[in-house]
Design a protein around this nucleic acid. Structure first.
Lengths: 339, 339
DNA sequence: TGAATAATTGCAAACGTTTGCAATGGATAG
DNA sequence: CTATCCATTGCAAACGTTTGCAATTATTCA
C-alpha cells in the first residue's frame, strides 16, 4: 500500500455499499444495520482508517485548532502558558499550533497572516517587543476570527485579554526592597513600548514616591531584549557608579546579568545591593545568591486565554471584550534579604 | 461584514463572472482578458481575499506544512533546532507545526496520531525519554508519510536521521578531564534507553579505558529527567562520598545541579572536582564557575532535518534512509581548568 | 395476498479551490 | 457571406467528508 491513506470511498468500494452508509456506520448512526456497521468498522480498523482532517475542516468550516503566537520559545513563563493552553484545549477537543516570532515584528505579521486563511479557529497572541503597529491583528478581527491577547497585549484592538497586574507586581517588588532598608533603588527592564514594562516601572515609581524616596534618570534603564547579555551590558555603568543599594529587574535574566556585573565589581549581593527579579525562572533557585523574584502564573494565564478563546468560538455572535487580571507573588530568596 | 472570509465565489458573483475565471485571474493565467483580471484583482484586494487554506489542501493533497515533535520547549538546543527548521521551511514555502510532548510517551502517541490524518506533509521527530515503543511512527511511514528523526532517534524505523556524534562528544569531554589531571571521573546522564545517553556514556568509557583509568558503578548515574533538580538529587551521595575529582554531565542542567551540591559540601570547582557539561546553555557563561561544555549544533541539525524531509516529500517514490552525523566541540571554561 | 409501515440504503449537494474541456463570441480570411 | 480561428469564458469534476431527502427493501398487519 504505497498510496496515501485509506478513504471512506475505498471502504465503500470494497464492501460494495455507498460512502454515505460508511460514513454513518463510522459515526454509530443507528440508521445503519448492525451487521453492515460491524463490517465497516472491521475494515476501517484493518486499514487504520483515519478521517481526513482537511476534508473534515472544509465541510464543517472548523479546524478544531487554536493558534498561539509567542515571541520566544526558550522561556519558562511562556512554556507554562503553552501548557496551560494545551491542557485546556486538549480537554475541549482542540489542537494547537505554536508560532514563535523570535521577537520579530516582521515574523509576527507573517505568522498572523499565515494563520488568517482558515487554518485555525481562533488565535491567542502575545505581541513581540518590536511591535508597534497592529494592522495584522485588525485584519484578523475584521474577518470575524476570534482573538485573545495575553501578557504583552495591544489595547487598540477590541479583544479579550489576559494580563498580569504588572503595576502591582512592580510595586510589591520595590516595596520589599524598601522594607529591606534600600533607599537608592534602580530599575532595569525591557522595551518600554510594552505595557508590561511600563506598568512594572510605574509600580516602581509608586513604591518609591510612597516611601518618599528619589530616583535618578541613570537609575532607570530600558534595554532591548531582556536576556542575560543585555543584563550585563546595560547595567555596567550603573554598577561601576556604585550609587545604588537596590535593584529591581523586570526579568530574572536581567537580574542575573546584573548580579554577575556586581560580583565582578566587588559588590556583594545582597549586602551591598539587594536584587529582585521577575518571572521565577528555575535557575533562580540555583544561582548564588538564589534570586528573589516575582511569580508569574503562566499556567493559569494559558488556561484562561484558551477558555476565553473557546468561549468566543462557541458564541460567534456575542461580543467579548473582558480583561482578566492575574496576580503576582513575591518570592523572597537570598538576593534581597538584608538583616 | 460579520461573515467569515470572502471567497472566490463572492468575487465571481459581484463581478457576474464564473469562479473559474476568478481563479484564473488571480493566478495570472494569460487566458483571461486583462481587463477582467484587473477587475478581479482589485476586488480581491479590496476585500482582502485570501485563498482558503483548507480548500487548497484538499484539492492539492498538500498542506505545505511540516510537523515537529519535540520533547521539551524550554530548551535552548531545541529552540535552535526549531529555528533551523523554520528558516529552511519558510524559505521553501512550508509552514511548521510544533508539538511538545513534555517528555511523555502518551502525549507523543497522541500528537503523532493527530498529525497522521493529512494535516501535515511530513514529520520531524525527536522521541521522548519515556518512549520505548514505536508503533505510532511505524503507522506513519506505512502510510507513506515522510518522516525524519533528529537527536533522539529510534533505529527500528527506516527513516532518515540527523544525529550528533554523541560518542565522540562524550569521548572528547572525558579526555579533556583526563588531560586536566582527573583520574576519578564520574558520569551523570539522562535515561539510558536513549541513544544519546548510551553513546555519551560509551565515549566516557572509551576515554577512561584508553587512559587506563577505572570507574565504579556508583560513579555512573542515570537519572530520569536531566534537569537542575535531578542534577542535585541524583548526585548527592556521589558528592558526599568525596571520591571523585572529575564529572562529565550529559546536560548543563545536571552539571549545574551537581556543582551546587559540591559547593554546599565544601568542594571547590574546578580545584577539587572538574566538571564538563553538555549543550552549551547560555546560563553556563554566567554561572560561577562558568561551565565547560560540549557544543550542540542545533541550528544545523534543524536545517538538515528540514532539508531531508522536504527532499523526501518532493520525491515520493524514492527511498531515503541516510543518517547525517553532526559534530560537537569542546568549549573550555572555568569549571574544568586545573593548572 | 395486498397494502401499509418500518428499516436500510443511496443520491446528491455542499464546503472552496483548480483545471480539462466545451462553448461562446467576435474577428479574420477566403 | 460563410467558414475558420482565436480569445475569452463557463461547466463540471475532483479532493474526502457529512447529511437531508428520496428510494429501495423487508417486515408487519389486516
Amino acid at each position: 500500500m504505497k498510496k496515501g491513506s485509506v478513504t471512506i470511498k475505498d471502504i465503500a468500494l470494497e464492501l460494495n455499499i455507498s460512502v454515505s452508509t460508511v460514513s454513518r456506520a463510522l459515526a454509530d448512526n443507528p440508521l445503519v444495520k448492525p451487521s453492515t456497521r460491524a463490517a465497516v468498522k472491521e475494515l476501517a480498523k484493518k486499514y487504520h482508517y483515519r478521517p481526513n482532517f482537511t476534508a473534515l475542516s472544509l465541510r464543517s468550516n472548523k479546524t478544531k485548532t487554536l493558534g498561539i503566537i509567542i515571541p520566544q520559545l526558550v522561556h519558562e513563563f511562556f512554556a507554562m502558558v503553552i501548557r496551560g493552553i494545551e491542557d485546556f484545549a486538549y480537554s475541549n477537543d482542540y489542537n494547537v499550533i505554536i508560532c514563535s516570532t523570535h521577537e520579530s515584528y516582521e515574523r509576527e505579521v507573517i505568522d498572523t497572516k499565515a494563520l488568517i486563511n482558515g487554518r485555525i479557529d481562533g488565535l491567542m497572541a502575545c505581541i513581540s517587543k518590536e511591535t508597534n503597529e497592529f494592522d495584522h491583528f485588525s485584519e484578523f478581527v475584521d474577518r470575524g476570527l476570534p482573538l485573545v491577547f495575553f501578557d504583552c497585549i495591544c489595547d487598540e484592538i477590541e479583544a479579550p485579554k489576559v494580563v498580569l497586574d504588572d503595576f502591582d507586581a512592580g510595586y510589591k517588588a520595590v516595596k520589599h526592597l524598601i522594607e529591606q532598608g534600600c533607599t537608592k533603588i534602580a530599575y532595569v527592564g525591557g522595551p518600554i513600548n510594552l505595557f508590561i514594562n511600563k506598568d512594572r516601572l510605574a509600580g516602581y515609581n509608586k513604591a518609591l514616591s510612597e516611601a518618599g524616596l528619589n530616583t535618578r534618570d541613570s537609575w532607570i534603564i530600558h534595554c532591548d531584549s531582556g536576556d542575560y547579555d543585555d543584563g550585563m551590558e546595560s547595567t555596567r555603568e550603573l554598577v561601576q557608579a556604585r550609587e545604588i543599594d537596590g535593584l529591581f529587574a523586570a526579568t530574572d535574566m536581567l537580574a542575573i546579568g546584573a548580579i554577575k556585573n556586581m560580583k565582578a565589581a566587588g559588590l556583594k549581593v545582597p549586602e551591598d545591593v539587594a536584587v529582585v527579579g521577575f518571572s521565577n525562572w528555575s535557575i533562580g533557585t540555583l544561582y548564588e545568591p538564589s534570586l528573589s523574584t516575582m511569580s508569574q502564573p503562566g499556567y493559569e494565564m494559558g488556561q484562561k486565554a484558551a477558555e476565553l478563546l473557546i468561549q468566543q468560538i462557541d458564541n460567534p455572535d456575542q461580543e467579548f471584550n473582558e480583561t482578566v487580571v492575574l496576580h503576582s507573588e513575591l518570592l523572597i530568596r537570598e538576593s534581597s534579604i538584608r538583616d
